[in-house]
């Protein structure tokens, strides 16, 4: 077994260890920290799970969490779907739509007022 890849390695890992899981990922995969009870391990995924967004760095691609009021996002500051109780407007999650826009409770977005 290659010293850098112990038997416990999951498919996407480039290197891993028994206690920490993945330490680095194969090319193009995203590194995600997964907490299971008191344990925290690294896993490598082809895309980030819901509620996370991906960022590519020179040495690693990482998934990070969307903001607390956002369910799915493109980047930390651009939400694509808000959590319950918030309305989406220009990538932001608002409790109340700005003046001139109305809250669409179906799509949970702020939309132009239709006369």
């Amino acid at each position: 077994v290659h010293p850098n890849v112990s038997q416990g390695c999951q498919g996407g890992c480039a290197t891993c260890s028994d206690y920490n899981g993945c330490l680095s990922c194969k090319p193009r995969l995203f590194f995600v920290l997964e907490r299971i009870g008191m344990k925290q391990i690294g896993v490598c995924l082809s895309s980030c799970p819901s509620g996370y967004y991906g960022t590519r760095y020179p040495d690693i691609n990482k998934c990070a969490k969307c903001k607390a009021d956002c369910e799915t996002c493109f980047t930390r500051n651009f939400c694509t779907k808000c959590k319950s109780g918030f309305y989406l407007h220009s990538g932001k999650c608002l409790e109340k739509c700005p003046d001139g826009l109305e809250a669409n409770n179906h799509t949970m977005e702020c939309t132009s007022v239709v006369h």
């Binding site: 008191m38 925290q40 391990i41 690294g42």
Partner: peptide
């Protein structure tokens, strides 16, 4: 305190 593991990259 309560024991919690942290991955080095966290």
């Amino acid at each position: 305190g309560k024991l919690l593991q942290s991955h080095p990259l966290s």
